[in-house]
Design a protein around this nucleic acid. Structure first.
Lengths: 233, 233
DNA sequence: CTTCAAAGGACAATGCCGTTGTCGTAGGCT
DNA sequence: AGCCTACGACAACGGCATTGTCCTTTGAAG
């Protein structure tokens, strides 16, 4: 076979599938996003995507080389969505907080794609725009260049790392997801004070706190520490 | 079949496989780590693991309920290795710094496994020991329980999230790894000041800083912020 | 209009995968 | 010495991504 993919721009024919769908990169990517959103993590397989589109699974290989290729196309869409509509306010802490939470939220909306996207440097337009914006906020806040770069690095890596981390939790099969949670609710709640005094003393608090993401608070700590450094200059 | 797993502690018989291996949780987990390390994360399948052990794939189900269970055991092994030989010093900041860097280092030693394991709550022995130790450091430092738990959450998730993030970079094929770096060295270095003034102004610093992990500095910021909160109590 | 190359959807097959029902053997207790 | 059953082995099932091949349909050229 060697190669059956034709770039979207060079497509001339549009032939409907047996069930009447007219395929295109756009339609496939959007359906994939819907599939992930509606039926959770494991739902994205070539077979199921084909079924959702009303097309034979193998037909998708006319549009993407393989599943990774497809997921990258989906991921590309996400990078843009994280920034969509953001505007600088002039308050650097508020701005960074907003950017951090936006990145986190955008990726949580599509956990499957997030896991792939979060640790790749694309060097493409949307990424460059984000780097530029964050560096701008820091430099305008008064951080010297070297310090701005260090904080940028910690800030962005932390946002992406947590995004991937929390996405991974969401992308788990429901059973495993429930099991992970149950560990805090049941397992740790029962450890005896004799062997695990600190866990026993805080079990209730742990079970409550570990339900959610650690990111918002971690972000707050990072912003606090950065502010302290700005003052100390 | 319903249930064929017997807890390691209650095992009495040790029957060698056809090829002579004597199975045990330990042997299986260690072989899994080797397999992942040598042939990549994709190499970990029940079938291949069975082959590497000289046992029928189905035999592993006498030791683990399913692959996820096995993966959790591998994850717990990594957590155990991170703590091996650690001792509290009484200086809470130094202690947390040491634990954080140890976790990070232990996972970097097995990048492929780290990617699979870093997102999971194992509920197993080594994890409980780590939770207990970290909570102990924070409570002894004087943080009230609720605050200790919040900081524990941020601290541990940050360590694991960065561990997974940096592991993913290490686990990339060398070519892709080089390409990622090149983005900072070449791509961003060439963006014109007209469109990306902040990147242009810091390109050299960026290229240098983005080579390494953002974790050590992010950890420092977290510890600084926590210390400030302790003082403010 | 008619023609006709080839785009692209469908089918079938390949070789993975995790998992489970079942069987027989041998380990170790009494 | 004899029994029970733990546990390794075998075989089979259904689902996965991917690919070789066929054949219908498209749409441009004449």
């Amino acid at each position: 076979m060697s190669e059956r993919v034709i770039p979207e721009s060079q497509r001339r024919r549009r032939r409907p599938t047996k069930q009447g769908t007219v395929l295109s990169e756009q339609v496939i990517v959007e359906t994939a996003l819907q599939l992930i959103g509606r039926h959770g993590a494991g739902a994205l397989s070539v077979r199921r995507l084909g079924a959702a589109l009303g097309a034979d699974p193998s037909s998708l290989y006319r549009y993407f080389h393989n599943t990774d290729d497809l997921l990258l196309a989906v991921a590309d869409e996400l990078i843009g969505r994280a920034q969509y509509g953001w505007q600088a306010t002039g308050d650097w802490q508020a701005d960074l907080r907003a950017i951090g939470l936006r990145i986190h939220a955008a990726y949580q909306a599509h956990p499957q794609a997030a896991m792939l996207a979060a640790h790749r440097t694309t060097g493409r337009e949307n990424e460059a725009r984000a780097v530029e914006a964050i560096l701008g906020v820091l430099r305008r806040a008064g951080f010297p260049d070297a310090e701005a770069v260090r904080i940028y690095h910690a800030f962005v890596d932390q946002a992406l790392a947590f995004a991937a981390q929390d996405a991974a939790a969401l992308a788990l099969p429901p059973a495993a997801q429930a099991a992970d949670l149950a560990v805090w609710q049941a397992n740790y709640a029962r450890l005896p004070a004799a062997t695990h005094p600190n866990i026993a003393a805080t079990a209730r608090l742990l079970a409550a706190d570990m339900r959610g993401s650690g990111y918002p608070f971690a972000l707050e700590l990072l912003l606090d520490a950065a502010a302290a450094r700005l003052v100390a200059l």
